[in-house]
Design a protein around this nucleic acid. Structure first.
Ligand SMILES: [Mn+2]
Ligand SMILES: [Mn+2]
Ligand SMILES: [Zn+2]
Ligand SMILES: [Zn+2]
Lengths: 139, 139
DNA sequence: AAAAATTTTGCAACAAAGTTGCAAAGGTTT
DNA sequence: AAACCTTTGCAACTTTGTTGCAAAATTTTT
């Protein structure tokens, strides 16, 4: 049987390269979301920084990972669980950022509520990020 | 009567300097939120970049402005409407980011709903950012 | 299985964004 | 107005992100 990473890459019509396999594999093994810096550290000198930027960009475009907004200038990326496709993400779940251990969780079973906006405003996407203490870090 | 900016600065126990007055004034005159870059552009050569960084930092700490998370690595800042104080923000409103004109609105009258988290997770802060088309940009 | 065609990668060179220490300038208090 | 404390600007630096292009790797065609 083939590696999961390879299957995913093919499903999204991407050519299977070493970089992509390794980075995707890292996501598959990680509990939470990852920043560019996390990946750069983990991969060591293996890949060029530029390649990591481009790979993340490609993965987002193809619907393999999604971004999670934050107020600390460090975009986090996490695997899409739903069947997201190129240009169409369906990641309507809440994200949780632990202030203790720094882990960012995709709360796949907690969905984002509909927000009633003022007249004239049309919603396109809603991002909801909760921060606090995660189940592993509570005293 | 004194300028509003000066009053605010004094209320938050900050010494009144030219930089702080001008930057705060810019916030008071702006409809939406501002990024560091917005301010740097607006102020031209008037102030050093470093000073702007430090001023924004101070304003956030003192509860004069709050940050708005985003997925594009460009933190936005907006005036606190509620009576936020040093170390204690109470900005529980929804933010709206227009994909057309780029304006970020504080929807002060749309409050963030309570989110039911999985067992063991404790919420501390909730950020909710909606993006779409604003009332000015709708066709 | 080679060759041709296409895509991806690494390098180099930049550009932009953010940080730190320190002396000079500016505010505040007495 | 002197003394005191805080803020600013500068310089130097680190980190983060972007772009063009040739070499290398992958996929498609023959
Ligand atoms: Mn997620
Ligand atoms: Mn706000
Ligand atoms: Zn934790
Ligand atoms: Zn708009």
């Amino acid at each position: 049987m083939q590696e999961a990473a390879i299957i995913t890459l093919k499903k999204h019509e991407l050519s299977v390269t070493d970089t992509r396999k390794k980075i995707l594999q890292f996501f598959l093994e990680s509990a939470g979301a990852l920043t560019h810096a996390d990946i750069e550290q983990q991969m060591g000198e293996a890949f060029d920084r530029v390649t990591i930027y481009r790979t993340l960009q490609t993965f987002v475009e193809k619907g393999i990972i999604h971004t999670i907004p934050s107020a600390d200038n460090a975009i986090r990326y996490a695997l899409c669980k739903d069947n997201c496709a190129a240009g169409h993400h369906h990641d309507d779940h809440v994200h949780f950022l632990c202030n203790d251990c720094g882990t960012t969780y995709c709360l796949d079973h907690v969905s984002v509520p509909k927000i009633k906006l003022p007249k004239g405003f049309t919603a396109n996407q809603t991002d909801l990020v909760v921060s606090g203490v995660c189940h592993k870090c509570e005293a």
